[in-house]
């Protein structure tokens, strides 16, 4: 598929601005890991996936499961930008009665394929969806995004074993490898490296990329689709808080909202208007 990197980069910036607005209005939430995943999610929703906002449940659609459910702001921003619901609703994030729950709820919002938030479960649910598509001979692919800290969950490896065992080549997982989790660096909290060798040993096709390079992300999805007989893991090196100078590579911005001045600065740095 022809790719317009310039357009996608602009879209990723818009999504980053939306993330800041969401989290600022909620006065809580997870900006760091939403910003690190923004380029990956943008390529999925505006280039890679076969989806239709007018028919969110169409039978042959591709599906995305946000296994790192705390990055809900990036998913909501992508869905709103793609037309699944009005953009004005983004500022209701985390508020009482909102469809934009602190972590995604599939029962409330169109386009959400699975309710997530408890780490490790999304990737396993995605395996079930990929298996169902195989069983039914459906062409739809299943994508799931994990955090690097998330892969400390044992369930991730149960799922990793099963995905390879069932030859789920219609499953593509992405690790948003920003290196940071709530309590600090992965290697200080609980080392996860080598992530690539671990997934290879589990029988996965592993592709390592720069998770902020639109062309590399898109190419990795092409390669994943071409790989037969085993699932693909895209190991995307990213920076937590990417795009906002004072949030970048700072674990302190995992689960904290910017104040008014910080939000204004962030939006302006991202090329938006406050």
């Amino acid at each position: 598929m022809a790719i317009n990197c310039e357009l996608l980069e602009k879209k990723a910036s818009d999504i980053r601005v939306d993330i800041i607005r969401e989290v600022h209005s909620a006065a809580s939430g997870h900006p760091g890991g939403s910003l690190s995943a923004a380029d990956i999610v943008t390529v999925l929703y505006f280039h890679e996936m076969n989806i239709d906002p007018k028919d969110p449940k169409k039978a042959d659609r591709d599906r995305f499961v946000l296994s790192k459910g705390h990055a809900a702001p990036v998913l909501y921003a992508a869905l709103a930008e793609r037309g699944f619901f009005p953009k004005e609703e983004l500022t209701t994030l985390r508020k009482l009665g909102s469809r934009l729950q602190g972590h995604p709820s599939m029962k409330l919002l169109p386009g959400i394929e699975m309710s997530t938030g408890s780490l490790g479960q999304g990737v396993s649910v995605a395996c079930g969806m990929a298996l169902a598509n195989k069983l039914d001979g459906k062409a739809g692919r299943v994508y799931t995004l994990l955090g690097d800290g998330e892969i400390q969950e044992g369930l991730v490896w149960e799922a990793a074993m099963a995905a390879a065992h069932y030859g789920l080549d219609n499953l593509c997982a992405i690790v948003d490898w920003n290196g940071l989790q709530i309590d600090g660096k992965n290697e200080d909290v609980m080392n996860v490296k080598p992530i690539d060798e671990k997934f290879k040993a589990f029988g996965w096709n592993v592709i390592a990329i720069d998770g902020h390079n639109i062309a590399e992300i898109a190419k990795a999805f092409d390669e994943a689709r071409a790989c037969k007989g085993r699932p693909t893991m895209i190991l995307a090196k990213t920076h937590k808080g990417h795009g906002v100078s004072f949030m970048e590579d700072n674990a302190g911005w995992h689960g904290k909202a910017p104040g008014d001045d910080q939000a204004k600065q962030a939006v302006e740095e991202l090329g938006g208007e406050w």
């Binding site: 394929e113 490790g120 479960q121 396993s124 995605a126 298996l131 369930l155 074993m161």
Partner: peptide, 23 residues
């Protein structure tokens, strides 16, 4: 029929994915 091995967490999470695919 799918035997996921000795992995009960994966059993029920994968079952969820199959259920949300019409099974």
């Amino acid at each position: 029929f799918f035997n996921v091995g000795i992995a009960e967490q994966n059993l029920y999470a994968m079952a969820t994915g199959l259920a949300h695919s019409g099974k």
